[in-house]
Design a protein around this nucleic acid. Structure first.
Length: 439
DNA sequence: CCTCCACAGGAAGCGCAGGAGT
DNA sequence: ACTCCTGCGCTTCCTGTGGAGG
């Protein structure tokens, strides 16, 4: 029988796992000084009670976008807190902030920040709801109409002369972004006191093309691109975290460099590099070796890749899982190739791309197999889009050679690994549904 | 050249869930 | 308890696109 004491007393390579979490915000963000300074300059007007321009930040995952923004916002809030304190102390209000805000002294412009993860709050309504929830907790109920929420928020802004800064992380996930941006700009037009600024963060550069001209011009007032980290930068970042997160001298130089090199080769993703190292540490702990070498990192790499895919899959709605399953089946099926060479062109020479119609056929039969009701082809196309957004599949427009225009689909991860996972998850869903029916 | 095919993606509309108002 | 309203997921319908084939 294992006890918690035993587990806890077991020696470990970790000193403080919190530091190694992707959500941890370090004091210093190395190699992002320039970007941070730019963002600070753009946000500085908030300190003079002016509306900062909207900012759009682009960069691949794990390039420090969110961390940098949070870092700047933290600093901004610190300045306001300090000012608040000195005002209370000095009475006369030394702060320059009150100058512009005008006569009624007490109503100094205050900056408030609302962080919105658009993966969860993925529509205009939900974003607005999130803002309301943050600042007007008494309104924290469903059922209010969009217009009610809008009025309450603008009322609150005008009353407190608030300079609201809304951070929209993964802004490309917002389905009606055009409407959202329109609402934001309209609010600014209507407000005589207070303002709303938006910081949009995205890892998809091409999503700009899908924006309407109006939201394009308003969201992209200021734009900054976070480049991927290079291998030496990644290893410096890892060193910084290791110093605080791992026990002394437990991680070899070779392990750090390998993790950095692997991550740099993939996408320059610091989160991925960190994850590799954490996994390598876990492997070392399991083996009770108290030392992380490149061997552990090598092993970690294999499991981290599938871990990531499994995580994404488990959060997917059922029908997206079925679509994914269908794509995997098709990618693996050999009959398909025979079929293709028979009546189709030799278009997918590398044998990896599938036609969207084919996958839909497979999806329909998968629906039958799992006993689920099928969705229409139109909705299926939306699912494809979502899956592409998540990086589970890649799609390209069919160029020449294929009838009309269709999409060619490719599974992002190894289909032979994903298929059993999806199968398991889907049969589980099925079992749950059947149980629910019995109840 | 015209028509057909196979698909993309916009628009409208429908049923449902859940809260507000009465 | 009811009616009304709103957002959401979804279907249906429709228009557009571009190669294949007559």
């Amino acid at each position: 029988m294992t006890t918690f004491d035993e587990i806890l007393s077991k020696p470990s390579v970790f000193a403080d796992r919190n530091v190694l979490s992707p959500h941890y915000l370090p004091q210093m963000l190395p190699f992002r000084e320039k970007e941070i300074e730019r963002v600070m300059q753009w946000l500085a007007p908030a300190l003079r009670s002016q509306r900062p321009a909207n900012i759009f930040i682009y960069g691949k995952t794990g390039t420090g976008k969110t961390s940098s923004v949070k870092h700047v916002v933290k600093k901004l809030e610190e300045v306001f807190a300090k000012r608040d304190a000195s005002q209370k102390q000095g009475g006369t209000g030394i702060g320059a902030s009150g100058v512009v805000a005008g006569k009624n002294g007490s109503g100094t412009g205050v900056a408030k920040v609302c962080y919105v993860n658009c993966k969860i709050y993925n529509s205009r309504y939900r974003v607005l709801q999130r803002i309301t929830k943050e600042f007007l907790p008494e309104m924290d109920k469903m059922g209010f109409g969009l217009s009610t929420l809008y009025e309450k928020v603008t009322e609150w802004i005008a009353k407190g002369k608030v300079g609201l800064i809304v951070i929209l992380d993964e802004v490309d996930m917002v389905r009606d972004l055009d409407d959202l941006m329109y609402t934001m700009t309209r609010a600014n037009d209507e407000l005589s006191d207070g303002s709303i600024s938006v910081i949009g963060i995205s890892n998809k550069l091409n999503f700009k093309d899908a924006l309407g001209p109006r939201s394009k011009s308003s969201l992209l007032e200021n734009e900054i691109i976070f480049p991927p980290y290079l291998a030496p930068q990644l290893s410096a970042i890892l060193h910084q975290r290791i110093a605080a997160g791992f026990a002394k001298d437990t991680v070899s130089e070779g392990a750090v460099n390998l993790a950095a090199a692997i991550a740099a080769q993939e996408t320059g993703d610091a989160r991925y590099a960190l994850r590799l190292l954490v996994k390598a540490g876990e492997i070392a702990d399991e083996k009770c070796v108290l030392h992380v070498s490149d061997k552990e990192v090598e092993d970690a790499r294999r499991s981290v890749d599938t871990d990531l895919a499994v995580e994404t899959i488990s959060t997917l709605p059922e029908h997206q899982q079925i679509v994914m399953f269908a794509a995997c089946c098709l990618a693996l099926s050999t009959s398909r190739y025979a079929n293709l060479s028979g009546n189709q062109q030799k278009q997918d020479e590398d044998g990896k791309f599938m036609l969207s119609g084919e996958v839909y056929e497979e999806y329909l039969s998968a629906c039958r197999n799992f006993g689920r009701k099928r969705r229409s082809a139109r909705w299926y196309r939306e699912y494809l889009h979502d899956l592409e957004m998540l990086g589970m599949i890649t799609m390209v427009e069919s160029g020449k050679g294929i009838r009309g225009h269709t999409r060619l689909i490719k599974v992002g991860y190894a289909p032979e690994k994903l298929k059993p996972i999806l199968e398991k998850s889907l049969s589980q869903h099925r079992a749950e549904a059947e149980q629910a029916q019995l109840m």
